[in-house]
Write a protein that binds this DNA or RNA. Sequence first.
DNA 1: CTAATCTCTCTAGCAGCTATAGGTTCAAGA
DNA 2: TCTTGAACCTATAGCTGCTAGAGAGATTAG
Lengths: 140, 140
Amino acid sequence: MYSIGDLSKKTGVKIPTIRYYEQMGLIAAPDRTEGNQRRYERRELERLSFIRHARDLGLSIEAIRDLVELSQHPEKPCTGADAIATTHLASVRAKIAQLKKLEHELERIVSHCAGHTVGDCYVIRALSDHGLCEGSMDEV
Amino acid sequence: MYSIGDLSKKTGVKIPTIRYYEQMGLIAAPDRTEGNQRRYERRELERLSFIRHARDLGLSIEAIRDLVELSQHPEKPCTGADAIATTHLASVRAKIAQLKKLEHELERIVSHCAGHTVGDCYVIRALSDHGLCEGSMDEV
DNA sequence: CTAATCTCTCTAGCAGCTATAGGTTCAAGA
DNA sequence: TCTTGAACCTATAGCTGCTAGAGAGATTAG
């Protein structure tokens, strides 16, 4: 039997976060002591590690809820789990692509700034004048 | 004179967002009509475009507040603006590096999954068992 | 038994908006 | 001039994924 603090130390998930996950339905409400404190079993330790790991990979609470649900049914086909991971991979890649665009834009802005006052600072001018962008980032 | 709707159309910033920026002190409270509706000048249109552009680059409201402040003082040295952009560039790069790690991990997980049921699904197993990770992402 | 440390619930806060409700004002056409 | 419909107003609540604090009660080591 683990207290919530034990669970927290073992998984690296903070105590309020554990309670939050319970509220969000990622972990079941555990048994309580007579004094109303949560007491966990090994099972819940494992599930929380699962959740932690999935969060580290950037999966949403929503996606994790689905994965947890799936993991409770080992006999079902795993296409659902695969789809969740694949979809997430795609969104991670999209995010990377977007951030690389930002990186290039920022590099360009920063490197071009040879001015010494705000009046001729390329950083400020680039932000003021969208025309200074290479191929605008958005359609506006 | 532009109404808030005009401003919104011209800059692509949604109306509630414009009001939010006013509240946050990014743009000054404009004059009002007798009937209490906001009326903007060209000056504010330009500033909002500036803000939009900076947001597109991922700068925080806080950072933008500083940049806007700086841009009002063309005679000052631009080291502050440069520092904001440089710092942001560093954080974008850090984010990219982190997402690439996630990308690799997810690729590995997805590509290894040859199972057909949840019971032998690599996605689920990889999440359940941290030991399946290549060089763990975190120290837990 | 006591003191120190957990733990409990509830509430509010973070960023950066977005949405809704319920009311007022504006502008264009008849 | 009047009417109607679109646009606007404020205020409040909600979104994600936590985190922090208050104030009270529970547990445990000595």
